[in-house]
Amino acid sequence: MSIEVMLNAAGLAFVVAGSRWAQPDGQVMFIFILATAAAEVSVGLALLLQLHHQYKSLDADAASVMRG
């Protein structure tokens, strides 16, 4: 969720920049960001489901087999 907030904020910055110079480039960047966010959300949520299935909790620290 925090990642979504961040991506959104970055996109906002791009759009503002594009609007400053009345160019469409800012909006184009925002579209790409949107596409990326969509892709990342789907894959991330899939991973989340898998994590929940394996460890029966959403504790990120539980998946620390790769330590050391």
């Binding site: 990120a60 620290d61 620390s64 087999v65 330590r67 050391g68």
Partner: peptide
């Protein structure tokens, strides 16, 4: 330094 490699995503 090896403490930082603890496998926790956070």
């Amino acid at each position: 330094l090896s403490l930082t490699e603890n496998g926790r995503v956070r």
